[in-house]
């Protein structure tokens, strides 16, 4: 399996930064960076990461199931993550999530038919004092209201 030159560069650095013989340490970061490019963690990627990190595919597979950001099925081009944990809950996080469901017509960890959007109700993502918070891919949005989120989604749709 080959990745983009940029990613290969990141991986090359990654594999060097741990003590001698500890390439297994790169498993988690390698998976998440690769997922961003490949779209999901499939069997081929598992085997590739295993090969590069010198572990068994099972050892990689175990990790994939554990971390909630790693997905075995592709998410949308824009992965909308709405926090409903306590700080967000108190200021409308759940209502925001409900409205996002309606707007996108999909539920938790589902993908729109055109593959553009996916939705996930997530746990606290460290934006509590600027709640309710949404993260789209890796971009944070603070003090989000249903209206703001709808606009955001519309602008992403238009950007295509």
């Amino acid at each position: 399996m080959t990745f983009s030159p940029q990613l290969e560069e990141i991986f090359a650095k990654m594999l060097q930064q741990y003590p001698e013989g500890r390439t297994r340490s790169a498993v988690v970061p390698m998976l998440i960076y690769a997922q961003d490019e490949v779209g999901s963690v499939n069997r081929e990627l598992i085997e590739e990461v295993a090969r590069r990190c010198k572990v068994t595919p099972l050892q990689v597979d175990e990790v994939v199931g554990y971390y909630s950001m790693l997905h075995r099925k592709p998410m949308g081009k824009y992965h909308v993550q709405v926090c409903t944990n306590i700080s967000c809950l108190l200021v409308g996080g759940e209502e925001l999530y409900e409205s996002a469901k309606k707007k996108l017509g999909i539920g938790h960890k589902q993908v729109t038919a055109d593959g553009q959007f996916s939705l996930e109700e997530v746990e606290c993502m460290g934006a509590c004092s600027w709640a309710p918070a949404v993260e789209i891919n890796y971009d944070f949005h603070h003090f989000v209201t249903p209206e703001k989120l709808n606009q955001l989604i519309d602008s992403l749709k238009r950007a295509q």
Binding site: S25, V27, V28, I32, V63, M69, L70
Partner: peptide, 27 residues
């Protein structure tokens, strides 16, 4: 000094689970 990315797990904030995660394992 290096950075190391997690991948979504509160438990990896617990110091020893974090170390397992840093070693490429389940946290």
């Amino acid at each position: 000094l290096y950075t190391h990315s997690g991948a979504g797990a509160y438990e990896c904030g617990e110091e020893t689970a974090l170390l397992d995660s840093l070693e490429g394992k389940r946290g």
